[in-house]
Nucleic acid binder design. Sequence first.
RNA 1: GGGAGCUUAGCUCAGUUGGUUCAGAGCAUCUGCCUUACAAGCAGAGGGUCACAGGUUCGAAUCCUGUAGCUCCCA
Length: 866
Amino acid sequence: MEISSKYDPSLIEDKWYSEWLEKGFFRSTPDEREAYTVVIPPPNVTGVLHMGHMLNNTIQDVLVRRARMQGKNACWVPGTDHASIATEAKVVSMLKDQGIEKSSLTREQFLKYAWQWKEKYGGIILEQLKKLGASCDWDRTRFTMEDSLSEAVIEVFIDLYEKGLVYRGTRMVNWDPKGMTTLSDEEVIFKEVKDSLYYVKYQGVDFDGFLEVATARPETIAGDVAVCVHPEDPRYKNLVGKKVRVPLINREIEIITDTYIDIEFGTGVLKVTPAHDIHDYEIGLKHNLPVIDTLNNDGSISNDGTLFIGDDRFVARKKWVKSLKENGLLIKVEDYTHNVGFSERTDAVVEPKISTQWFLDMKEFMDKNPEVLSSVISDEVKFYPEKLKNTYKHWIENIRDWNISRQLWWGHRIPAWYNQNGEFVVSANKEDAIQKFKEKGMDVDADNIRQDEDVLDTWFSSWLWPISVFDGFKDKKELDYYYPTNDLVTAPEIMFFWVARMIMAGYEYTGKKPFKNVYYTGIVRDKQRRKMSKSLGNSPDPLVLISEHGADAVRLGMLLCSPAGNDILFDESQIQQGRNFCNKIWNAYRLVIGWEAENKELTNYESKSINWINGRIDNVLRENESHFDQFRLSSALMNLYKLIWDDFCSVYLEGVKPAFGDKISNQALDLTKEIFSKLMKTIHPFLPFISEEIFQGLNGNSEYCIISNYPISNSENLTHDFEIPISLVGEIRNIRAQKQMSPKETLNIQINNPINELIEYSEMIAKLGNVNIVDEISGSQVISLPLKTSEVLVELNIEIDKDEERKRLQSEIDYNKGFLKSVNAKLSNERFVQNAKPKIVERERQKLADTESKIFSLEESLKALG
RNA sequence: GGGAGCUUAGCUCAGUUGGUUCAGAGCAUCUGCCUUACAAGCAGAGGGUCACAGGUUCGAAUCCUGUAGCUCCCA
């Protein structure tokens, strides 16, 4: 049978994936084995796969596959998130394209469209993950808005309300005028923006002249209720308590004092606009000032804004500036760089806004659950990389109440009910609500009860994910087995949104941590370190990459360049490297299955080689255990890459490969296949498809790589006796390259005083170096190579430049003498000999002896050259 | 403004309690090879004052202090 020299992943990937599915290898049910659990960070239900998902899910799959092969009951739970604001925004824009305005629809009509959208696009991303090879238990696929998970969300809300942790309150919140909803603090992204600072005249009422006020937001002037100066500011001391006129509006406001004011900033005078700035709001509360809200929910000027009513805030700003100028009230304009908050989802400039919302009292919550912080500090929940512990600690220690209501329709509707008097109760349904109103002695008219219009923050459902995917709020059976989960693989940017809150929910509702380890991946960037994004067009389509190069190649390309905790700089050439590696393995496979075997003795050399390669494998397995423990997957993969390519292919296979026309002993062939199979198992978590294909091919399709036992390191000792022959081969090849001789040309060498290794491995030296080892070299053109106490003479068929050869030897001697000097210096330093560990001193003595003998041998060669 | 971290080869990064010839790996580069598994390959080579300046030590890429530059997080 002819097998192509080019590995074609398209021929096998789908085949194996469906076979694994069919055999149920991904499925998990509780049994007596140790559980290994991972819950997927649920992607947005209508999202599509991007490079970040690829990295994230490849890592999870590597961990899960390895655990499965280690005999654990591996359970990887997939699912999607309803992503309230993102999905609603998509549906709104889809409807707009069809000429339908959201405002023209009832809640029910809108939700119908939204569910249709979800049915159509929901879960595409999960299908895409299958192409990557993700070994999730698909029977367990969950969705944050399905019935069971929704019930858990409502139950938790009610519970927290009854515990007094959830409250309804009027606060200054972050308002997204584009999404028309509030945002949590975490959903606000601060960016540095170049703006202008306007210096405006506030005319005195009961004094001559005016106050000069610097502001970046002239469009909010109509909302001014005071101007404020620092009590110690000598410039304004005698004006305190007097009045000024609001520019253009002419309303009179008082000059007050507060120590909040920065004397250095602007003119040292602040216009106090409580409706539109958080600090002004606080000053307003302190001084009992009124609130004038000059903006509508969509960011346009409200009736209370007096001027430019209905204009967008940024349009109004320009008009205000123009008008101030025309009226001689604008003194000057300065460039001003400051940080402005933007909505994470819609990128609109966030407006501080006073509104009534639902909050979770975080201080109280943390007092009740101190483990949320202590578990991370003590590594009970371990973060990789560790440095993120600090960030977490800082956030927790400065935590603020969590605004959990959103002015959206797509999501879990808040289970609060209002009577005709505006009083409310919290309960799961209307019937219970009526009951509760009655119990509390409040008026209740069944026809006039209405449910809160708002929905809950998406993260208010995701924070329950590790519990709710096992239906842990109803039934503890699966929870007891799978929870706490083992590893969470996610992006650092959602540490506060999600990771921290899962830890909170975990301790509140199970009394336990939700996971043991959190591995934060980096952000996928392009070669110029730009974040991959749709708008930049620098993000390749992962599915195209998979179809072009194969899933294995993509996985390897992603992982090779993603050291733990670092951003990954993605470049398609890395995937080519992955593809090349697959091809290398493929060709090794072609070689081995093409060998013809016959019944003969295993040679001494073959058995040595087998011992050596097994030792190498054991060594890598041992190193990789610690790499895996530390989530250093790149290092583990690189170890395997070199093990297979350099040790197995370039040294082992080249060494035992029978000469043209010869046959190999069947014992050696069997052992080689065994070694190859072992390597395929070892690499399987990284390259699941090609490893399964080759593993099955080597073993006559009798068993599956995916559920085989992951190899463990058996021997403690790596055989080092290969090193000297290999280094000799290297030197011979080097001479060949320097003299520009063909690799095809066989050279004669003579070994004087051969040390053991050179005798034992003479066959390998001959093969890999393409040399004949003879007793006595006949020619006169000879190069000498000292090797420990032996000397190797290489006979060349070309004239040797004796001067050049002398130079080479001399420089070698000089280098070694220099080295010898430094070793001697150390050893003759009494303080070194006294203070250094004996082992270190002994090492230095050994170096001294080795170098002396090497110099001696080099000098002999130089003499021989005449 | 507050906090955390980083700086090692052209690029991306390792470097574990300070001590093997410790200055490494992969990629890239250069040279020679279509050698019977693989040119998606084989063989070989070059390349770094470990950001800078001090200090501790017998010994510093590693520990301490300062300086510069960069990144991230929070307000």
